[in-house]
Design a protein around this nucleic acid. Structure first.
Lengths: 146, 146
DNA sequence: TTAAGTGCAAATTATTTGCAGTAAG
DNA sequence: CTTACTGCAAATAATTTGCACTTAA
């Protein structure tokens, strides 16, 4: 659970700083730590408040849970993260903010990217008049085959 | 909010009873009332615990909120309803249980069916080994055009 | 210096559960 | 009769918020 975060190191710090800079967010110690965990290696990540909280604690850069929540919200508002609705009991956040499909592993409750190039939507219902499509969420729910 | 439920009447009662019978659920007064609101006219419906609670109260067949939750859960477990994840803060339930696309109206927080015949998925990422696809959720998020 | 960020504790919101009473088979 | 269902009140769980303190600009 905690191993799925970016390795720390100077380049991670650098990337984190740039990422925060993108949105003009004040680079506090906590935000830099969280940003480094999220985008320190350029990989896409899917986190929950709890998973990020645990990761920060385990890496020796503890951040309060309230700040985790505030920060995830701030990153989202700034467009650095996308919130994905897959489970009614928990929020998931994705470092990749463009519209792309996901796998949701029902047994482990883990969210991952699905290869977007393997999804071809030929035809999409058109938005009713007066509306526009904000986004199309595609979640492929997986379960272990018995 | 409350007007989007099935009109009451003898045929609604009949349909409700049959629907409950499908799953072998004991037809209590409250379950019959809720079932009638949900499937009394054969239309598909999308409800939250609160919307169903309000509807029951408004129709003069009040059901406690705890029972609403228990019942929605029971209907879901019995395969009579499908739970759709669209919003992290609330659960939505659909009377149509097959896999089909949805519109989610972000301003009103309302969930509706999208015309399935207008969605063509040409190619879907294949499930990783050892897994099978339980379901594919497609949620088209709409917002009022400015 | 000063507005924004942090963290604790308390508050909120959605949902579940324990349990005594009620009703369906 | 007997087991499942209902509803209240209390318990949980995820998330937000008030507020005094800290820190980046």
């Amino acid at each position: 659970m905690t191993q799925d975060f970016a390795p720390s190191g100077p380049e991670a710090q650098e990337r984190a700083a740039q990422w925060l800079g993108l949105a003009g967010l004040r680079p506090t110690r906590q935000r830099r730590a969280l940003a480094a965990l999220l985008v320190g290696d350029g990989e896409n990540r899917h986190v929950t408040a709890e998973s990020l909280y645990a990761a920060a604690r385990d890496r020796g850069a503890p951040v309060s849970l309230a700040t985790i929540y505030n920060t995830l919200r701030a990153f989202c508002d700034a467009g650095l993260l996308a919130e994905i609705a897959v489970d009614a009991t928990r929020s998931y956040f994705d470092t990749r903010t463009d519209d792309h499909p996901h796998f949701f592993w029902e047994d482990s409750q883990v969210l991952t990217d699905a290869p977007a190039e393997d999804l071809t939507i030929l035809h999409l219902p058109q938005a009713p008049e007066g509306c526009e499509v904000a986004r199309v969420d595609v979640v492929i729910r997986l379960r272990r085959r018995r």
